[in-house]
Nucleic acid binder design. Structure first.
Lengths: 196, 196
DNA sequence: CGTCTATTTGAATGTACTCAAAAGCGGTGG
DNA sequence: CCACCGCTTTTGAGTACATTCAAATAGACG
C-alpha cells in the first residue's frame, strides 16, 4: 500500500521476492515535511538517502555571498540526498528544503550496507540509479557550458514541463545559474518572439 | 603484469579470487591509439567502456557551430566512455580522441552483463564507479553555475595539477566552457596579481 | 486589509565573446 | 640542421550577454 510507488520504482530494475521486499521495507523510515521545512541543512551530517513518495524537494547550495544555486529538484518517485556527503560521511554543504508538503522514505547508509549484504541485487539497483544520475548530470554540464541562458531555459521547460509549472521563476533561475531578473527578461523576449 | 594497474583499481573496491580474475580478464580486449586518433567518433555506436592503462584521452562534444566542449579527460587508471550512448545503446554524440599515445582495455556492454551474471560483485564495483562519477559531475555543475571563469580555472589547476600540465590552454578552455582568448586574458590577470 | 515576497522594468556595469592581427612554438620535410 | 607550415597563444577593439542595484508593480498568504 504505503510503499507501492517505491516498490514499483525498484521493480523497474530488479525483482524481489516477498521476503526480500519485507526486509527492505523494514530498513526504511518515514518522514513527512511541511512546506518550507528542511530535510537536510547545510552543516549537518547526511546519513540517509531519501525516496520522495509525495511532494516536492529542492537541494541547493548557498555560497558566502548568499547566492543560491539549485542542485536538483525531486518530485514523487525521485531519490535525493547530498551524495557527496552521504558517500564520504562528511558534513553537508547543501540544504534540502520542501517546496511543497512532502513525505519520504529514508534509508540510512548503515542500512544500505546491510541491504547490500543480505540482498546483493540492490547493488544492481543502485548502480543503475547512480548511472542514470551520472548521465543526467553530465548532460547538464554540457548544456550549462555550451548553451546560452535562453536555450537552457527552453530546454528545461521541454525536459521537465510538469515540474516547471510548480516552480517560481526564482527557483528556475537558481537552477539555470542566472538571476531572476534576467530570467524575467528572457521570458519577455520569448513572448515577443512568439507573437504570430 | 599487463593488467596490474587495472586489477589494483578494482581491488580498491572488491576482492576477486583467481578464477574470477581470469574470467574478467578473458572478457577484455586491448586497444592502442596513436596521438590524435580516435577511440570513438560522434555518430558511431558506443558499445564499450574503456579503462586507460597508459596515455591520455579527451571526450568532447562538437556543436553545430563547430564549438567544442570537453566533457572529460582520462589519464591512466581512469574509466571512460560516452555513458549516455553506452547505457541507451544509441549513436554517440561525443568523440573521444587520444591526446597522447594511449593503450586501453575495453569491456563491451554484452560482456559487462555476462560479468554481472557470473561475478555479481562487479555490480558493486561499477555502482561505486558510477557513484563517484555522479558526485564529480554534480560538483562540476555547481562550480560551473556558481563560479566565474577565473575561479573555475584556479580550481581546475588545484584539483588536477598533474593533468593541467599535459594540456594546451585551448583544451583547458574547452573544459571550462570559455574561449582560449579569454583564458589567455585570465592567465595574464593572475600573473599580474601574483607579482610580489 | 496589510505584509511579505516574487516579478517586472530600466540604467549602469561587468564579464565573456567575436573578430582580426601578430607573435610564439612545435613538428616535419628537405 | 634549418626553414617553413600550421596551430596555439597573445593582444586589442568592439560587441553581446548577463549582473547589480533600485524602484515600481503584482501576487500570495495570513
Amino acid at each position: 500500500m504505503k510503499h507501492d510507488l517505491l516498490l514499483s520504482n525498484i521493480a523497474r530494475h530488479i525483482s524481489l521476492d516477498k521476503e526480500e521486499t519485507e526486509y527492505f521495507i523494514s530498513l526504511l523510515s518515514s518522514r513527512t515535511l511541511k512546506k518550507k521545512n528542511y530535510l537536510l541543512e547545510a552543516g549537518q551530517p547526511c546519513t540517509t538517502i531519501s525516496y520522495v513518495n509525495e511532494g516536492f524537494l529542492r537541494a541547493y547550495y548557498r555560497d558566502a555571498d548568499d547566492n543560491e544555486t539549485t542542485i536538483m529538484f525531486a518530485v514523487a518517485d525521485w531519490w535525493i540526498t547530498d551524495m557527496t556527503c552521504f558517500v564520504n560521511q562528511t558534513l553537508s554543504i547543501t540544504s534540502i528544503e520542501a517546496i511543497e508538503d512532502t513525505s519520504v522514505f529514508q534509508l540510512t547508509k548503515e542500512n544500505m550496507e546491510r541491504l547490500f549484504i543480505k540482498v546483493p541485487k540492490f547493488e544492481r539497483f543502485f548502480r543503475i540509479l547512480m548511472q542514470n544520475s551520472y548521465v543526467r548530470e553530465q548532460s547538464r554540464v554540457l548544456q550549462t557550458l555550451s548553451l546560452p541562458a535562453e536555450e537552457r531555459y527552453t530546454a528545461f521547460l521541454k525536459k521537465y514541463p510538469s515540474i516547471a509549472g510548480r516552480l517560481t521563476q526564482k527557483q528556475i533561475a537558481s537552477y539555470l545559474g542566472i538571476t531572476p531578473e534576467f530570467l524575467s527578461v528572457i521570458r519577455k523576449n520569448i513572448s515577443k518572439g512568439n507573437v504570430s
